[in-house]
């Protein structure tokens, strides 16, 4: 995931400059949300977990140490990963989600039919991803929705980078073998 150019400086200023926090938040929020949404499925659950993630981030900022490019993202998504796990520990989650529970999928120019197809694709992909082994679920969502590089995913999950690459490759193969995209209708 592209790091903010001035991320290090922002992190140094964050305790005294609200604008520094605001910039970091606005940069990372969409990715955290996308990652969490694909992990928990329902919009309302995603909002609850994302809120908890950022509260944990705020609480932990004093203890965070910058250790080079990508270290903040790795730390942030480590928290997100933990919160998602916590969510699954605490909730009896029914993996069957209805379309009206799905998070919004952006697309300003989409016709209603196309938007519906996007939502169906999300539901379909969500079902396929949650059927993967847990580690591959993590890796694929961190890769595609959190936007992390393999190296950063390795840091989040305490894995070797090559292991991440291997899992990612196999996860994609598994998904491709089962994925049949919904056809978007021309409006």
């Amino acid at each position: 995931m592209p790091e903010l150019d001035n991320e290090r400086a922002l992190l140094q200023q964050i305790h005294t400059e609200p604008e520094a926090f605001r910039q970091l938040y606005r940069h990372y929020f969409p990715r955290v949300y996308a990652y969490v949404a694909y992990r928990v499925g329902r919009r309302q659950d995603a909002e609850d977990v994302v809120a908890e993630v950022f509260i944990k981030v705020v609480e932990g900022l004093k203890r965070f140490e910058y250790r080079g490019a990508g270290s903040f993202a790795a730390w942030l998504f480590r928290i997100a990963h933990n919160q998602v796990n916590q969510f699954y520990r605490e909730q009896q989650v029914n993996q069957q989600i209805s379309l009206d529970e799905i998070p919004d999928i952006p697309g300003d120019m989409l016709s209603p039919d196309q938007a519906l197809v996007r939502r169906e694709n999300f539901a379909h992909l969500f079902a396929l991803i949650t059927a993967l082994p847990p580690r591959r679920q993590e890796i694929i969502t961190l890769r595609f929705f959190a936007g992390l590089r393999n190296q950063e995913i390795a840091a989040v999950l305490n894995l070797d980078e090559r292991t991440v690459a291997s899992h990612l490759s196999r996860a994609l193969d598994d998904l491709r073998s089962q994925y049949e995209p919904e056809k978007e209708h021309e409006s």
Partner: peptide, 9 residues
């Protein structure tokens, strides 16, 4: 489709 169906808050 993975990219296109990235959820948005």
């Amino acid at each position: 489709d993975l990219v296109a169906s990235t959820p948005q808050a």
